[in-house]
Simulated scan of single mutants.
Amino acid sequence: MAVTLQLHTSPSAGFDEPFGMLHACHGRVERTLALLSRLGEHLAAQGGGVPDEQARDAAADVRRYFDVAAPLHHQDEALHVFPVLRAAGQAALADALHAEHERMEALWQPIRSDLQAIQAGITPAGEALAEVRSRWADFAALYARHIAVEEELAYPQAQSGMGLHEQEAMGRDMAQRRGVRDVRNPILAARSQEVAP
């Protein structure tokens, strides 16, 4: 059975809708984690040896996302969502989500090393691969729980606590940190989807 190792993207909100962009980022996280899982299946099916080009490309895609886009997404939340939650008396929720970001960053480092090895042509096999896949699954499970809390609690509360001007400023800040100058320009907004988390 062939395993598809491509990361598909889909249209999403622009920076003029910052909470829509945050939701879209979660969709990208989920697709990237699904790619990571498929990569593990693919490596298991290969049974060791030098990883093929598909595996190396998938490893590069996952690594790029969690090295570049995911930290920007976490920064968006730290700068714009968590302070609003704290101001609304939801400091415990904001602190818990922030602590999970730190945990994700710590869990990411050995996964990053796994992916670098695959990109360099080294495939873990046997028990080592089982350990790697377990580490990847733990990372994905933490993200799934985290996303659920943000989608169900954090984002709705933060959005309801922000006025239109605050949300516009949030979108501009998110865009500027990604090198997008004019969030109202539809062409730039469309191109920004390629670099937005």
Rank of each mutant, 00 (worst) to 15 (best):
A189Y: 01
G126L: 10
R178A: 10
E17H: 04
A120Q: 13
D182L: 11
G27N: 07
I122T: 15
H73M: 03
A189E: 01
E166T: 10
D16C: 02
R191S: 07
R184M: 13
D76V: 04
T123A: 15
L39W: 02
R191D: 02
A106R: 15
R31P: 00
L36S: 01
F19L: 01
V84N: 03
F66E: 02
R145T: 12
G179S: 00
R181M: 12
E168F: 04
A148D: 14
G48N: 08
H146Y: 08
G179I: 11
E127I: 09
A44M: 09
L72G: 09
R31I: 04
G47R: 08
R56S: 00
E150V: 10
G49H: 05
A55F: 05
G126N: 07
R184V: 13
D76M: 03
E77C: 10
A141D: 04
F82I: 10
V149T: 15
P71R: 11
H146G: 04
A106M: 13
L79V: 13
L7C: 01
M162G: 02
A13R: 04
Q6N: 10
R63C: 07
L22A: 06
S37G: 09
Y65C: 00
L153R: 14
V62K: 03
A69D: 06
A190N: 12
H80C: 08
L164G: 00
E151H: 14
I147T: 07
M104R: 04
A13S: 05
P186F: 08
D67F: 10
R172L: 13
Y143T: 06
D57L: 08
H101D: 04
N185S: 07
Q176N: 13
I122C: 05
A190W: 14
L79M: 14
A140E: 00
V68I: 15
V68W: 13
E127R: 14
R112C: 11
G20A: 05
G171Q: 02
L39I: 05
G179D: 01
D16S: 11
L188M: 14
P18R: 05
V62G: 04
A13L: 00
L35S: 01
A70N: 10
G171P: 00
P83F: 12
R178I: 08
R64W: 11
P110M: 10
A59S: 06
R28E: 09
A58K: 03
E166I: 08
Q109I: 12
